[in-house]
Design a protein around this nucleic acid. Structure first.
Lengths: 340, 340
DNA sequence: GGTGCGGGTGGTAGCGATAACACAGTTTTT
DNA sequence: AAAAACTGTGTTATCGCTACCACCCGCACC
């Protein structure tokens, strides 16, 4: 046990050549006589030699690893991002270090530092909030290419891939307006996350276009999870004039909102209509009643490698690009027409 | 840009000491005069130096990384495993390389090879099937400690953490029996996955204890995803004497089964009762009608590091341990009593 | 005033791989 | 036939860091 790792020298010795020749065989160089190559390959086989990426990385100054940093891997949206990212990274010959920041700024700083120490060749980051700016500047200062995913940050120059938050939100709200809703609640997280900001903008834009004077009391700010959704919905239902429809900033918030509505003995969509951003794949199959603006999460996860590798390999030196992926509107039954 | 990475020598030069002293400062050695330490720390700060884990790993023969290899990160069960694993790995001072094998044996072999090349200090593997045996032998031969999670493999000596599949399945089926069901269908994947084998054993055990002669036609073998569930349910519904209740091997299969039942204009649980292994967190909140045997996925993901690190750090040299986590029975409404 | 000791620091040699060059032997070119 | 080009291989010098040992210094001790 613990066979003190076979090195290139062991292989060289066993096959009676220098380690350079072994290196050439490993790397598929042409400049090796077939007979020699065969001897080396047999020695590799017999010894079970696997070249160390550590050593190779040190001399080549490339580790072959990328980092993906997200606020919550268990969020169904990011789960798909992760799968898309892992897949393309591997196809491109890279391994992926996954970090979950738990939406914690300090933890984010810490893991970013660790990824720098690991000399990852690039990072994809869904930042916690605008306050992640300092962390990203550090990454940039260190010369590590990175791509923002899902969320942008004002003042941070970088390639970014996001969904169409303004347009998507507007479309969802316009859908509710077409159904006759006039008092539309909005449950949203803090404004220092770009997605929240943009969806808020879309919400107001839709109302303005419809000539509706927005009522600030209908906009509730909470945390971006199910607990927040529950609290937000409760707040909306407690209003004197409660909304007939509610737009929640994402899927988890929607879940909490539905639970709160049920607790108040209200039915979705009969008593209160509901729409949200992001789909919940499995839940939607079981309960196909939630109207959502589904983002192409897996695509979002798979595109970043392309952008990143263009930077890494120096194929793109120009301006930073913002890729906005169109969201897909899925009308289901969570928003009946106003009947009252 | 590309500030050609600051090295320990740059720091040494700037602070007027040797790189050994800088190394001592980085590693918190006592043997450094406070004044010197201060000078070095300032230089580190000014240059933005971050020590390379590559170089350190090469000399220390430790990379500080672990690998987690699962068949599908987007499966809600594994998603939780991933989160649990990432969390404890980081707390223990390790980074985590995540690999998704897509339940593909060839891909599994490939990623395992890559993880060996990366010199991870340990792996947690949810193997594709019993045919992963060869891959694990390779890992063992290389002296890399590993833990099996969720699935065991006959003949592979290793620490393992799994749910109580036999007991859980038996309990689910016994629940159906208590409700009066006698013809209980079982939709399961191939027998070369230990979870399927064990749940099958639990299914038969429950029937046997109840004195029921099992009908092999009620056991349908398909793939372990929603498509398989759909096909499996269709097959069961096409029987002359169709089952009044169905047990599916996991949550995704259950989703497909429900869809198939609906397509056949049958209601769950009124026309056919349904139970399954694994919960679907978000779906269950939205549609709280599925009776399941929930496994402590996140715990399963977090325990492995403990087992693994005991091996890595040589704290445990003894026999391999099998940790069986009790499953949690969640009775919801997907299994009404037999009314016909 | 040697000897011993421990604190603080530096020198040197690698970890395992590859880049860059060197070089002998063979083949092609002029 | 000499020069040029190519083939196949080895030598050497790192990559960035740390293990290991050497060393110098000041102070206590006998």
């Amino acid at each position: 046990m613990i066979p003190s790792t076979v090195t290139i020298k062991d292989v060289a010795e066993r096959s009676g050549v220098s380690s350079m020749t072994v290196s050439r065989v490993i790397n598929g160089s042409e400049r090796v006589r077939p007979a020699t190559r065969l001897r080396v390959e047999r020695a590799i086989e017999e010894l079970g030699y696997v070249p160390s990426r550590l050593a190779r990385g040190l001399i080549r100054q490339k580790t072959g690893t990328l980092a993906l940093i997200v606020p919550d891997v268990a969020n169904p949206f990011f789960t798909l991002v992760v799968r898309g990212a892992e897949d393309v990274a591997r196809r491109a010959g890279y391994r992926m270090l996954l970090c979950d920041t738990r939406a914690d700024l300090d933890l984010e700083r810490e893991v970013i530092e660790e990824m720098i120490a690991h000399r990852v060749e690039g990072m994809a980051i869904a930042p916690v909030s605008d306050r992640s700016r300092a962390h990203l500047r550090r990454v940039a200062a260190f010369g590590v290419p990175f791509v923002l995913i899902d969320r942008t940050i004002p003042g941070v120059q970088a390639d970014a891939i996001v969904g169409d938050n303004v347009g998507g939100a507007r479309e969802l709200v316009e859908h509710l307006l077409r159904l006759g809703h006039r008092r539309i609640g909005f449950v949203v997280e803090s404004d220092d996350v770009s997605t929240a900001r943009d969806r808020r903008a879309g919400y107001f834009e839709a109302l303005r276009r419809a000539g509706i004077d927005p009522d600030e009391r209908l906009v509730v700010r909470t945390s971006a999870d199910a607990d927040g959704g529950r609290a937000g919905m409760q707040a909306l239902l407690a209003l004197d004039e409660r909304p007939t429809a509610v737009f929640t900033v994402n899927n988890l918030v929607a879940l909490g909102a539905i639970e709160a509505a049920r607790s108040a003995a209200l039915d979705v969509p009969d008593d209160v209509a509901l729409v949200c951003f992001d789909d919940i794949e499995y839940a939607s199959r079981l309960y196909p009643f939630l109207t959502v603006m589904a983002q192409p999460a897996e695509t979002l996860g798979s595109l970043w490698t392309e952008l990143l590798l263009q930077r890494v390999e120096g194929r793109t030196a120009g301006d930073h690009r913002l890729v906005v992926l169109p969201a897909q509107f899925k009308v289901r039954k969570s928003c009946g027409a106003v009947t009252a």
